[in-house]
Every structure is written in structure tokens, then in C-alpha cells.
Design a protein around this nucleic acid. Structure first.
Length: 214
DNA sequence: TAGTCTCA
DNA sequence: CACG
């Protein structure tokens, strides 16, 4: 008796922690739709480098779609329905974004997920996201779904306390990380992006992070 | 409350 | 030099 994924092949589902999994290649069937929808979103609310409350400009460029968008500036971290750059609502969440997030959450054991916020992060080589918790959402009972596109990256997934040493996971184009339940508030981040060239996206990595913020 | 920051 |  041999299963499909023995030998050299890697399993499609990797456990990172209790309630946290990596779904390898899960977004592949949505790839073309996702990229087309992303272009439309960026035409309305383009990427910009936000400033942290401490006054540092983030190396990762961000934008959002959906009813709520995550922001940081001198006055703090928060969700807002209005893009401060355009003074208009964030673009609507494309149907294929919501459908993918829902399917991934289901596959990860978090059924009934209905995201109202999608934070879109662009990493160019050298960009990173230091260890942090996602804790600006009203109800932390909802999971976080994170879709990787473009250049590969190293995901750092730690524990409930900042000083819990993070484990490192390779994230590739169309991989999805999903966490909730006991690991919902775990510290996580992305190591400095190494240089490279992706066939479809060039010298960048784009991450879609779905949340139910409201 | 500080905080997804930087540097040693 | 890369990494933690």
C-alpha cells in the first residue's frame, strides 16, 4: 500500500501549529482570475508605503479591498472603510478573492468564513515584515487566510508570546497559510525577501491576507 | 499598551 | 558570507 505523497513529494497540507496549516498550491486553480482581479483593485487603490506609529516607513507596500481596510499611520493601527490616499471607499472585494478565502478556510477546518477585509502586501527583494500579531479585528474567533503570489518567501510562525522562537516555512506561488482557533493570535512575520524573478509576477511577491475585521 | 520598526 |  503506497499513498500518493510518499517518497520525495511533499504533502499538500503541512501543520504549522494547532489550528494553523499550510495548503500547498491551493490557489492554483484561481491563479488567472486572481491576477486579473488584482489589476482592477490596484487601478482604484494603488500600493503605498505606510508609516508605523513609531514613525518608520514600512518596506512592504500595501493596499486593501473589501468593506474594511487595514491601515497604519502615526496615530496607530486600525481598520477603516475609506482609503486615505483616494478619500474613497476601498475597492470591493472581487468574488474570486472571497471564494478562494472561503474554500481555503473550509479546507483548513474553519468553516463558514466570510471575509470583509483583504490586505494586499507587495514585497520587493529586501522587504520584510517583522514578527507581529493580527489583533485589530473585532472578533478573533475568525481565522486569518494568507495567499502567496509571485516570488518565494520564508514565513515565520511563532507562538502566543513574542519570545517564542518562530518556525520557518517556505511559501511559494499559490500556497496558502491559514490559522485560527488556538493559534489565531500567534506571532508571525516574513523574512527579508530574497532576489529572484517570477514567471508571472517578476521581481516581487504579493500577499493577500483575508480577515473578518468587522 | 505598544504596536507589523531598526540595529547590534 | 548568511543566518538567527
Amino acid at each position: 500500500m503506497r499513498d500518493l505523497f510518499d517518497g520525495e513529494a511533499e504533502p499538500p497540507v503541512v501543520t504549522m501549529a494547532a489550528g494553523a496549516v499550510l495548503l500547498r498550491g491551493f490557489a492554483r486553480p484561481y491563479e488567472a482570475e486572481l491576477l486579473a482581479a488584482l489589476r482592477d483593485v490596484l487601478a482604484i487603490s494603488p500600493f503605498r508605503h505606510m508609516t508605523t506609529p513609531g514613525g518608520h516607513v514600512m518596506s512592504v507596500a500595501m493596499t486593501n479591498c473589501g468593506a474594511a481596510g487595514w491601515l497604519t499611520d502615526r496615530s496607530g493601527y486600525r481598520y477603516d472603510g475609506i482609503d486615505p490616499k483616494t478619500a474613497s471607499p476601498w475597492p470591493a472585494m472581487p468574488d474570486c478573492f472571497a471564494a478562494l478565502a472561503r474554500a481555503a478556510a473550509e479546507a483548513a477546518g474553519h468553516g463558514g468564513f466570510q471575509p470583509d477585509a483583504c490586505l494586499i502586501n507587495r514585497y520587493i527583494p529586501g522587504a520584510r515584515l517583522s514578527l507581529h500579531q493580527d489583533r485589530n479585528e473585532r472578533d478573533v474567533a475568525h481565522p486569518i487566510i494568507s495567499v502567496s503570489l509571485g516570488l518565494p518567501a520564508t514565513f515565520l510562525f511563532g507562538g502566543a508570546r513574542r519570545y517564542d522562537r518562530p518556525r520557518r516555512f517556505a511559501l511559494e506561488h499559490c500556497d496558502i497559510a491559514a490559522w485560527g482557533g488556538p493559534s489565531r493570535l500567534h506571532f508571525h512575520g516574513v523574512a527579508e525577501l530574497k532576489d529572484g524573478e517570477h514567471d508571472m509576477l517578476g521581481r516581487q511577491r504579493i500577499n493577500l491576507t483575508f480577515r473578518k475585521a468587522l
